[in-house]
Design a protein around this nucleic acid. Sequence first.
RNA 1: GCGCACGUAGCUCAGUUGGUUAGAGCGCGUCGCUGAUAACGACGAGGUCCGUGGUUCGAAUCCACGCGUGCGCACCA
Length: 1150
Amino acid sequence: MFRAVKTDVKFPNQEESILKFWKDNDIYKKSLLLRHGSKPFVFFEGPPTANGLPHPGHCLTRAIKDLFPRYRTMRGYLCNRKAGWDTHGLPVEVEVCKELGIHSKEEIEAFGVEPFIAKCQQSVWRYMREWERVTERLGFWIDLSEAYVTYHQSFVESVWWSLKNLFDRGLLYRGHKIVWWWAQGGTALSSGEVGQGYREVADPSVYVRFPLVDEPNTSLVVWTTTPWTLPSNQFAAVHEGIKYAYCRDPESKDTLIVAADLVQTLGEKIKRELTVLKTVSGSELVGRRYVPPFDYYYSKMGMQLGSLLAGGEQHTQWRVVHADFVTIDSGTGIVHLAPAFGEVDYEVLMAQKAIFAQGQGPGLICAVGPDGKFTSDAPDYQGVWVKDADRPISRSLRERGLLWHQEQYVHDYPFCWRASEDPLIQYPRESWFIRTTAFRDAMLENNSKIGWLPEHIGPGRFGNFLESNVDWALSRERYWGTPLPVWVCQATGKMESIGSYEELLAKPGVQGTEVWLRAKEANPELAEDLKVHKPYIDAVTYQSPFASGARMQRVSEVIDCWYDSGAMPFAQWGYPHTGKEQFESQFPADFISEAIDQTRGWFYSQLAISTMLFGKQPEYPHPFKNCIVLGLMLAEWYESKDGKQRFLTEEDARGALGGDFVQKTGKMSKQLRNYRSPQEIFDRYGADALRWYLFANQAPWNSILYSERAIRDSIPEFMLRLWNVFSFFTIYAEIDGFAGPSEIQGGLDQLDASELARAKTYRPVSDRSELDRWILSELGTTCRDVVGKMDRYDSYGACESLHAFVDALSNWYVRRNRARYWSSDKQDQDKLDAYWTLYECLVVTSKLIAPFTPFLAEALWGQLTSGLAGVRQSVHLCDYPTGDFAASDVLLNERMGLLRQIASLGRSARMDSKLKVRQPLSRVEVTLASDSHIDWLVSHDDIVREELNVKEIHYTSGSSPFVTYSVQPNFRNLGPRVGPLLPKLKAALGAASGAELMDQMSRNGKIVLAIDGKELQLDGQDIQVRLSAKEGWAAAQGKSCVVALNTELTPELIRDGIAKDAIRLIQDLRKRRQCNYTDRIAIKVFTKNSELAQALEANRQLIASETLASNLDVVVLSSESIEVGGSPQCELTELADEQIAIELKVVAGD
RNA sequence: GCGCACGUAGCUCAGUUGGUUAGAGCGCGUCGCUGAUAACGACGAGGUCCGUGGUUCGAAUCCACGCGUGCGCACCA
């Protein structure tokens, strides 16, 4: 038995109770148990950091991450969902520093590394509760209790294992790298941080002469925007393929060498004509020696020679070298190289070093200290901050005649994002790298096999990123992170890597473990996991295998926390120390999803690590097969026009500013607080509303507006419409005592059609009325469509399908069928068919929407199956409907679509002629372009008659007085065949009489035309016929039909219209008097107009039955007033422009 | 500066391998329905498909250039 539900449902409240139901009954666990042993669908959770509050963007990723696992689970897969938390790294340290009111490394050291990391460890859980609440409230089913945590010992050891693997294969190395250095803060910054701080500035740029050693009065001219790097010059670079010109400058005694193509540009710059003396190719310049502008190093090493590996000797530096990156886009085509202060410069140095015998090549020259000030190497500038040295250096060059030209150069330059006055410099720093460049091709190949959504990410953004791969700078000179598991022999400097804590303890002569033990003793609260962290792990040393008596000591660095996240596919299981089985069954992932900012983050770290560790075992792609790359979520807010009041909600703006405000959109910003907390959305509209909005409004990779109004608006168009259908069903099912599946003998499970078919009153679909067959056919089509789309990860398309179905169900099936539910015979088979059909639609729909709006689905399922023994406890324990239970009838769908179109055109025609639907009309003429569906339409004319309230309907596909025909070529067909003749053909067809052409076609089966003397035969497939309504008719036209109304009103039609109006008035009265649906009433109508009375009398039967009136009196009053005795049951109103009074009395309840 | 994406109605977005009348929802306007009822529905107005040029019988769709927006990369000396 069904209980009527209210239409004013409060979704948020309903969701809260469903959350409780899920929790109390362990539904999520059951959904997994149910699929025990099934084919796995593997999902990886990209770990969020829980040391900040979750924001709306996280809701988007979490909603998508929930959708597909739920769907696959219902499709019969086992989808484990292990949560995870990213817990290491600079963001955590920064957060703790803020709390402590410190920020430099010295201050951290002073505070103490030990208490510092203890604070870090605690801080990562600060917002855990909020995260868990948002996760749960959104309906994101994921196993939070089994979450992996990147600081846990097992995770750390797993990372160690992988690093040891790379180390042993020679892929993890220590090297110098040029990093972005914040000199004032004494630390390198990550590329992300650097990217935050770019700003446009004007820097001095100088053109400097480098005189050649072996060619008197001849100089190279180089250009640089960082004069302060000149004292550290080591090479000048040219490109072998570029032509260089020897030129004479009238104001310079030297002959100058610059790129030939730049001679003119440079001449214009200095406003003097440069005369080209000769040109040489770059390769002829390579190897030439020059005198650098400062002799701090040159004076000592200028003559230094080194032995070449290839034999012979060469000067170690201050030579011209070739470099690929040299272009003539700017400067002079000759590049000053200061390897200490530029990454590409540094690479050149390394390459040069490599051609010399060990120890014979050039070293790195660096006249600047880590504090960004010149060292004693450059005594003239010692202690001067590099940027402050630009000016004196230029002056010195000018004084010595080396400065050929100087100008301002405007460009973007990075500054510290936390101290925005401090420019960053590139600076050499020793750090650890992973040789990812050796795997560039492998990563590209692996990438090419990944199913990216949208597709262009693969070859586009991600592929490009891989193409320009550089070795992964792994180490961080910080505190809170996975310690780099490399121990160094204090005597020989030889190193080895350790793959686990146990392995470490098994080393000979281990010492220092007591540091941890003592700390733990002193503070038993300390998490056991901290023992593999700084500073405890640093204390552990062992006997060196490389030199007797020497100790092995860990290097001081921790690693980039992105490595942690990229290692999660195996580290989440502690693999290979533990969890071998889980790893093997849960790798690679079938599906992951994050926003596009993870391209260089988690997507890359995963792919790189996986490719390096596992190669082609298993086959590519791994570690993930499919990835939905989400767009960024944007904020929407309102502000006053003068911009004084900003970041308001729409409501607040309206309240505070009247209508005088503007809507703004932009990036979400924690600082600006330009978005509302997801919790507010949950409380006001519910999680399903948010989910549906996110899924159904655009393809997931588009950026999406987090708009409260849009979220609210997404409710009525789908969820509420479905709920109203459900409510309709329950109202009548209760009235009629429709038993539904409770009458079924034997076991019930998922209420599939086969189970329902066992009910006595359930008839085969083929025996039911056409509308029933139609909606079930649409249902089957929808199931297949949704499944096909979801299998392709097209959630947006699936929502479209679901939306269209709910629309058809609500706005056609239910609307056209209402009368069937009102029939007084409770056992009427047609009525029972209607119930069963609607019931089945609702049951299947609740399953279909379960992954999308899990709460609404659960609410529907719960009430549709209430009291049924044996039925699955939750819709999420059901199998997803695939549509194979009902043969879908494409022809029927098409025909019903046409019928709906005809109804719509009819309404349009009525609108045009201002004839409301309640006024019956005598006749409708429908003219169709083709006769293929006419017989069917004729057999269904009752539907259209009722829908359009007309007495008669007439279909034709032949000539019609309401319609003109025009014939057009079928371009798709004829295009390839007649090509260039098409425009003329089109014109010819247009010029001819449409009716005549159609005549010809029906007589001969073809049309023959001569175009440009060429005869063309067109058959039925080659033309398309268009209809249009002739002027002067109340008609409306669609693509393939025209609907025309006979607008003539006879007295009888007018009477019928009056009756319809009367019915409506009485119904309205019933409602206002709060009659029950089943109450019988007695009606008295008072009027002075006898024609009106006649109209009512003539339709007495109809009015009485429609309004459940057991008595209908029409009283014609002759007196002046129709106000009758002030009876409380009597009401004054208007009917057909006449005043009347209606008295309504309830006679009996049902 | 380079790369990737995007640019379609007032707003948010769809638009299949190019096919000649470009769609949806919201908003707006008009109206209807009234036994789902503080719900619902219909109809309508509204478009130089960013611009220019090209390919083609035919371009929102393909190509080139430009403009604008977003994101990423980058002192390419």
